[in-house]
Design a protein around this nucleic acid. Structure first.
Lengths: 224, 224
DNA sequence: CAAATATAATAGTAATACTATCATTTAATA
DNA sequence: TATTAAATGATAGTATTACTATTATATTTG
């Protein structure tokens, strides 16, 4: 906890970039504007040419920071999960009751990321919206295994593991802690997506309802 | 039930194709070989040029059947969900007990599609593997709303609705029937994906374990 | 057999996702 | 302050993709 708080920057695996975007103004602009553009038009419509135009730079300059737009999406995703993990740790710290701690963590997972703890002036809502729509594409592709090997998903996996450990703490006899943790973490993105695009496939159209759904699920699954 | 059995063909929304692939040998080859190629190399590596070469035809001929590879993926997805829906209806027919019926439906959802009831000689395992890896990309994109409007996801949505109704039958007081149904349906693809690529994010590495996970989840959530 | 339809062959286009090269600006250091 | 190094910009070019268009040749149907 102390470590995390004193080192406010989310530490992103260096395999995700060629040059650390936090190290220069151009890098910061690349990340900031890519979030604006991807949020507005989606990852398919987004490319480095458009981004270069947006920030008044060139494609070649952007390619010095990120190998391609896929890696940039992975970077943005790690930023999101890093913030969420940070908030989760802060929110659950000093909560002694296991179930209360778990529910606090889940509540955090469904909240908007607080971007103040980054080098970038970005809007949390945009970041969440990108993740809701695009994160699944960041790992459903041909190179997932080698990127996973290289640590591209380490923050995400660590967050799911933390959640899983909280579940163990609540009920050590439960056999499916990891699966339950991953179902909830995915739900924290996908249920929002459903509410937006497949309205009739979910009952949860607000953060509060989502929390109630998973609170009910967790309580009954782990406490009965 | 009777309707479904007597009309064995999965009825696929005509907005998904330009010319019905079931209406000719070429069409059948397009679908069959596209499943082989997408299963083997993923949707990103797949294109109509490669497919044309594989079946000894031309790009222009394929374009007469499908507007683009995205629509072809939607077609393949509908084929999968149509088969699953069919199996689900068959398996749950005549089961009077609500919970037993629901669990039977869920078990079906995690099984391999039986492709005998289609015009195509395709391997169910390949079809499942494609869905596990690619289905999320079929609806996480810019045109999801208009495609949804056009009925491109109607079979999928109908299946989730059926599941949701079974949940209502088990416990009509439960407030999150739709969300639970969609969580399970997504899990029927994604948990397999996790097992293959993010082994440590799930406890379920077999069909049986997956069933036990969701059986436990459903029983506790709806019966306590 | 004629007419319609389906398929094949070929060519071409705009956009994408890069790579390469060299010039210029900015920053670091001696 | 001069020198050097590093970062960025400007420009050009390539292979691939995702199509569209046109015309020729089969194949089917009336």
């Amino acid at each position: 906890m102390h470590n995390l708080l004193s080192n406010l920057r989310v530490d992103i695996n260096s395999s995700l970039y060629l040059k650390d975007p936090e190290s220069s103004l151009l890098g910061i602009n690349i990340v900031k504007s890519s979030i604006d553009l991807i949020d507005a038009h989606g990852i398919e419509e987004f490319n480095f040419k458009k981004l270069a135009k947006e920030i008044g730079s060139t494609e070649s300059s952007i390619y010095r920071y990120f190998e391609n737009k896929h890696r940039l999406l992975l970077y943005i995703s790690s930023l999101y999960w890093g913030i969420m993990e940070f908030q989760m740790v802060v929110q659950t710290n000093n909560v002694s009751d296991g179930l209360e701690k778990l529910l606090k963590a889940v509540e955090t997972l469904f909240s908007t990321p607080q971007t103040k703890c980054t080098s970038f002036e970005i809007e949390g809502q945009k970041l969440r919206h990108i993740l809701n729509s695009e994160f699944v594409k960041a790992y459903h592709h041909k190179f997932v295994d080698e990127e996973n090997e290289a640590g591209c998903f380490s923050i995400y996996k660590r967050l799911v593991s933390r959640l899983s450990e909280m579940i163990v703490e609540v009920n050590s006899d439960y056999s499916f802690c990891k699966s339950l943790a991953s179902v909830i973490t995915e739900g924290s993105l996908n249920q929002y997506f459903l509410s937006e695009h497949f309205h009739n496939l979910t009952d949860c159209h607000s953060k509060d309802n989502l929390y109630l759904f998973y609170k009910d699920l967790l309580t009954k699954t782990l406490m009965s």
